[in-house]
Design a protein around this nucleic acid. Sequence first.
RNA 1: GCCAGCGUAGCUCAAUGGCGGAGCAAGGAUUUCAUAAGUCCGAGGUUAGAGGUUCGAUCCCUCUCGCUGGCACCA
Length: 464
Amino acid sequence: MNKKFFITTAIDYTNDAVHIGHSYQKILADAIARYHRLLGEETYFLTGTDEHGQKVEKSAIEKGVEPKKFVDEIAAEDKAEWDALNISYDRFIRTTDPDHIKFAQEFYLKAKTSGDIYLGKYEGLYCEGCEAYYEESELVDGKCPFHPNRELIKISEENYFFRLSKYQNFLQKYIEGHPEFVIPETKRREILSFIKNGLRDFSVSRQSVSWGIPVPDDPKHTIYVWFDALINYLTYGVEKKSWPADLHVLGKDNQRFHAIYWPAMLKSAGYELPKTILVHDFISLNGQKISKSLGNVIKPSELTKDFGVDGVRYYFLRFGPSTNDVDISLEKLKTIFNSDLANGLGNLVARVAGLSERSEFTTSKPKKLSFSKEVVKAIEKYEVDKALELIWGEIKKADVFINERGVWNLKGKQKEAALTYLINRIRQVASDLKPFLPETAEKIEKQFKGPKIKSEKPLFPRLD
RNA sequence: GCCAGCGUAGCUCAAUGGCGGAGCAAGGAUUUCAUAAGUCCGAGGUUAGAGGUUCGAUCCCUCUCGCUGGCACCA
């Protein structure tokens, strides 16, 4: 039986459609998924949408449509965005999918059977101005930071709670004993220090929110969105008999839910824990947070129009926020597009194709290639930026080779040897690029298949 | 306020208790196979600031300044 590889991204909340801020994660996960698929592993790549909860309900009401209709539209939009980026998900799961709803309810009952769900009282301070709840620690002089003139209303509601506190020791020991559970290390330390500060039980149901999955044994309540959302991974993993997940890819805003709540929930319901949680940072645009209120939202599909799918993929994979927040801009994208893709990869391909065509060189059939060792090492550590850096090192070497040998001046056997060397190098580059720039890799492979190699249109026309 | 992280070349970042590195941008030289692309070579730094430990600190410690994130049921 083939080795399995199950990878997930976070599912995006359907309060609004996705934008470039959400793209890095999907592209990163896609590259890793493609890599494992290319290794011949039985790969399952899951992404999708998180569709329940108060905020969605509210947005739908504001728009005057039924919640389900509202999320149908957003989900379709999100999916189209990921398609534009060539994200090779195997399933686009929606938390409103019937199989997920059923599974989430079963999961809830399992946790309840373990004695980890109990009825309690949720008390919150509610600000009518913000229409949101606040924690004591968030208040300024006991008032809402945005509406200091209003009195906060103490609201209490009967909720079901999950006994997170029971798992404090387990989680601490587990994470201490499994350095690969949360990557990178700085995030793992953050999680550990959070756990050590003490974990409180959290509520997993709402009575005031109707847009959600009903609590199976008490349908006055709906399951709290986060509880519901996390379970999506298991819905699909169990369906494909591929649980536990090998990798959850997510942003730092989600790390606590994935590294603390989720493993505790799984343990309670009797499932294995995911192997690794890969946490990345955020993107800002022109030095600003990306947000609708700032009006600087760009959709992935708008970027791919200007830079091509692989142009966008390359930029994010090479300069994305893997361990640091990163600021992007159209100028930076353009500069990198020109220097690395047009002048680098694209030009090299055109050079060698031109040299081959002019000398009417006949090349041998391409061999079946495997990934370069160094590239494998980098991807296995999820350092995709490093992998690309290595590949670009190879491109540079090929350019130097052409210059130093003066390949265009060579004749006969010498020229053939030089071209053979270059062609094989390019074939290797294409092979290594497959997980990252699938479209480009395929074009290059086609062009360099032989026996005759011809010049083609530039892969990445220079942008001015 | 508390906790964590960051501050290194114009920009993006790397590095180590022992002479501060790379890529991009800018400058000079050079080649013509290629997308005015390629290659080569200078230059560019008081490693945010002050103090301390040390034979020696960019790295360890303290303080100051600046930035970012978290401080739990918004997702």
